[in-house]
Write a protein that binds this DNA or RNA. Structure first.
Length: 274
DNA sequence: TACCAGGGCCTTT
DNA sequence: AAAGGCCATGGT
């Protein structure tokens, strides 16, 4: 990977990332396609406009320093995905998933945003998940540009309370969101610390939140805490397991990169087959 | 273990 | 245009 300063932004070259797949594979809910190979959204409290180029991408209105500080990690650019591809192939991940997944990077999202987002995702479809999250940001986040709002902090959400969330129409999930917000706000749940404990321990801690079970906890571990061995099992992945691997399946066969295998399998099944 | 919980997207009639 | 299935689930 190489980062060079341009007028008005930075150019990242020599890195293997497919922005379309990365933003559209269901791991994050705040980016939209806003033009030819262009995506706009909010990450880490920052409005981002990013355009795919040959072998990399361009980000408007950002310095190398800011990129190195926050976004190398966000886009997981220090990880060697070619090596992971080889390891997963050896571990028996089928060619279809390897090809479909090529270019996806696991985004390292803010843990609280990941927790809140995947609570909202339960028994829900992606268009509506995005709509509810967007409403939540407009309702309780900070304005960072015209019509653009940050993801509200746990304190901001906790302060609103269940009744305060009514406008976003999260339905039965509202009480779960508030329980999560209260636990994070008062320190009962210390999300940052869960990056540095074993996966099983992180999942147990996350499952103390009402409405958080193994699937949502695994998504938070994978997309917010950097636990690449987390393997969320949802309805799509259940289908995949039945279809390709039978009931002797264990995510352990994919080792420390089971979560990346999961994402490849999910994307393959969800978007490229019917 | 089966059913239930908002709401709305999306496909089928 | 109306109906019904379904949805990156978990609680009871």
């Amino acid at each position: 990977m190489n980062v060079t300063q341009k007028t008005g932004g930075i150019l990242i070259t020599d890195c293997d990332i497919d922005l379309y797949k990365t933003f559209d594979c269901g791991q994050c809910f705040r980016f939209d396609s806003t033009g030819e190979q262009t995506f706009t959204g909010v990450a880490l409290g920052r409005l981002i406009s990013i355009k795919a180029t040959e072998g990399g991408f361009y980000i408007d209105n950002m310095s190398c320093e800011e990129f190195e500080k926050d976004f190398v990690r966000y886009f997981d650019l220090n990880r060697d995905y070619a090596e992971i591809h080889t390891a997963l192939e050896k571990a028996g991940l089928h060619q279809g998933a390897l090809q479909s997944g090529k270019g996806i990077r696991i985004l390292r999202q803010d843990p609280w945003e990941a927790l809140c987002s995947f609570i909202i995702s339960q028994n829900n479809n992606i268009p509506r998940i995005k709509k509810i999250i967007s409403s939540l940001c407009v309702l309780l986040g900070n304005k960072i540009d015209d019509g653009v709002y940050s993801f509200p902090t746990a304190v901001q959400v906790a302060t609103a309370g269940v009744e305060g969330l009514a406008p976003i129409k999260a339905g039965f999930r509202a009480k779960y969101i508030i329980d999560a917000a209260e636990r994070v706000a008062d320190g009962r749940l210390e999300l940052e610390k869960l990056s540095n404990v074993p996966l099983s321990e992180a999942i147990s801690a996350l499952c103390t939140v009402k409405g958080v079970g193994p699937k949502v906890a695994s998504c938070v571990a994978l997309f917010g805490l950097g636990h690449t061995d987390a393997f969320p099992i949802d309805v799509w992945i259940k289908r995949v397991i039945d279809k390709y691997y039978g009931n002797s399946f264990s995510p352990d066969s994919f080792g420390q990169y089971a979560g990346i295998a999961q994402q490849y399998l999910f994307y393959h099944e969800r978007y490229l087959s019917k």
